[in-house]
């Protein structure tokens, strides 16, 4: 959480703030609704998270940035942090894949297998 990270969705939200700041929360809610079809609570949740990350601040209903867009992207680190539902999805969801414990050797082996494939 102390890492300056944003997912794609958060980035698009952040862009709106950086573009429009200083922007009232009400205005922000309206924008997110029209842009992403977000409910008020969703907008507030995302905003809160980015404020906690120290990127924005919410001062009595007005949102301004603490870090500029350029500065932020300069500080980006390459690692990803997950905030997911955990490793395994609920059993009743149709999914693409599940998290396996693939060892490095297995990954290498499979990579080789794929590369060798000619059809």
């Amino acid at each position: 959480m102390s890492e300056l990270q944003m997912g794609v969705v958060e980035s698009r939200f952040a862009d709106i703030v950086w573009q429009r700041e200083p922007v009232s929360t009400l205005e922000l809610v309206k924008l997110c609704e029209s842009e992403f079809n977000w409910k008020k609570t969703t907008t507030y949740t995302v905003l809160k998270r980015l404020c906690e990350k120290g990127i924005f601040q919410n001062n009595k209903g007005t949102v301004t940035s603490l870090i500029s867009r350029e500065e932020f992207y300069a500080r980006q680190s390459k690692k990803f942090v997950d905030e997911t539902f955990g490793g395994s999805l609920p059993a009743f969801l149709a999914a693409f894949t599940h998290r396996n414990e693939l060892s490095k050797e297995e990954i290498d082996e499979l990579t080789r297998m794929i590369e060798k494939y000619k059809g």
């Binding site: 990803f80 942090v81 997950d82 997911t84 539902f85 955990g86 490793g87 395994s88 609920p90 059993a91 693409f96 894949t97 599940h98 998290r99 396996n100 414990e101 693939l102 297995e106 990954i107 499979l110 990579t111 794929i114």
Partner: peptide
């Protein structure tokens, strides 16, 4: 398929693992 299966840092909230479709 492979890239989706590469493990990342995770907290398993779910003690049961269903249908581990072997990626291999």
């Amino acid at each position: 398929l492979l890239s989706c299966s590469i493990p990342r840092k995770m907290i398993s909230a779910c003690p049961l693992a269903f249908g581990e479709v072997g990626v291999k």
